[in-house]
Write a protein that binds this DNA or RNA. Structure first.
Lengths: 253, 253
DNA sequence: TATTGACAGATGTATATACAAGTTATAAGA
DNA sequence: TCTTATAACTTGTATATACATCTGTCAATA
């Protein structure tokens, strides 16, 4: 879809070289000026590529010194972003199997969409069980809204819904909100995940949106507590903390 | 410290105006060109400010249209970043109380620092109980490494350690890794949080680093499962997915 | 010896320009 | 009426330039 511009290609290339240890942990990348020569681009383009890697936690930019490659193990790599189970599977090399329990067209009740939504909407409902090493680990319940998801073949649900949406339907997946809580499971979840009758389950609920802010997916993922691990990388951001508006020049011309 | 440059001030100002509904949800911000006039800066500076808001999930930039203010409730605002409990308290308006259980100088064993660490290091150990509406909700165990944390007065631990580190010690807090799991609590945690003998606890372990990549804090936060809620905003990033190095022009001049 | 100062090299910030590409509204045309 | 083309406005990308600021080195100096 996107990602065919210079800065993204450079970011991917450097990320790949970090992954393959061509640029090693605890060493500095070539300077921005050297990278300009290397890729034949301007410094701003290099800087935007490095900003992406910095945001992801692959490197730490240090003023006056350079861009240090951080020590992020493959298994401790953030799983907080929007990532499909297939991508995770590939990145972490887990040997996971997906079993489709349900797949049908339905009407999605307003309460599922949001607290303030009024009218229901058509869509698909998919229930999938993820097994890791033959053990049930996660139960996913997805609502996919129509539109924009007009079709959903069973093969896509078995393989990767994200792949299908991005590559076949050409949707531009952009962002999601996620909420993690610990709850008492319902009967279906308890049986599917083989939990004790008084056991708890980790629920990850998310709403996913396209680049034009269209809601297209509502997911609830139920994880066995003993199999659950959420890894995150976060940078300190101070945008929201203080609360004084700017003086003078903000009031307009 | 930082944050006194134009782009950050503009980002904070716009964020503040969104918060106070001067720019309302589901409306567009003034165009980048208008914002240039408004703040008297160049377009790149405006764009870098908007990028910050976009990354935080306050706005969605849409090509050809503008920057749409997203509908993020105050209570569903991400808690995934590096945020101090005091900041959270203020943002969410929770009425929380902090009780210091322990505060002492100690030696931090290598295993706590990392799997590969060899030598132990001096530091402070702080154990704090957070009560929300007079109910124990979270038990925090912090190791603060010396250096860079040379002193840690009790008043700082009661108020906000981050405030103290940033404003009094002048440390530049930059990033952290976090890991969320569900575990069986030890006796201290179980008693402090008033959990049943067979109950589980949510553990959030994090390592926090300064801008020069110095590790300065190791934290384990134990949450009562019924009080735990983790909210996140994530953008889809495709930097790591593909794995083909660039051809030709990357091999050097 | 120890400190200072100058310098080179690195990233950080801000500006200006040009063009590409998506969106919307309007006017021209069939 | 409906469709199409155009124009105006929007954000996206890339380049070039200038200067600020921080780091490390090295030489001059006290």
């Amino acid at each position: 879809m996107a990602a065919l511009n210079k800065q993204n290609l450079i970011a991917q290339d450097i990320a790949s070289k970090i992954k393959h240890k061509i640029y090693q942990t605890n060493t500095y990348l070539p300077s921005e000026h050297q990278l300009c020569d290397l890729y034949g681009t301007s410094r701003e383009t290099i800087r935007k590529a490095l900003d992406q890697l910095n945001e992801l936690g692959l490197i730490q930019k240090i003023k006056g010194r350079g861009s240090l490659v951080l020590d992020i193990q493959r298994y401790t790599f953030p799983i907080s972003g929007i990532t499909s189970f297939k991508e995770l599977n590939a990145t972490l090399g887990m040997h996971a199997v997906t079993k489709i329990l349900h797949l049908k067209k339905t009407t999605i009740p307003p309460c599922e969409i949001s607290k303030s939504a009024v009218k229901s909407q058509p869509g698909f409902f998919v229930e999938r069980l993820r097994l890791i090493a033959d053990t049930p680990a996660v139960l996913d319940r997805d609502y996919l809204l129509t539109p924009p998801v007009t079709k959903l073949p069973k093969t896509a649900a078995a393989d990767s819904i994200y792949d299908y949406l991005e590559n076949d339907l050409g949707l531009n997946i952009s962002y999601a909100t996620k909420e993690i809580t610990v709850e008492k499971p319902d009967d279906t979840v308890r049986q599917a995940l083989d939990l004790p009758s008084d056991g708890l389950v980790v629920a990850v609920r998310s709403h996913s949106y396209l680049a034009d802010t269209t809601l297209f997916q509502i997911t609830a993922s139920f994880h066995r507590p003993d199999k659950f691990k959420f890894i995150d990388f976060a940078r300190r951001k101070r945008v929201l903390s203080s609360d004084k508006p700017l003086g003078g020049n903000t009031s307009g011309k």
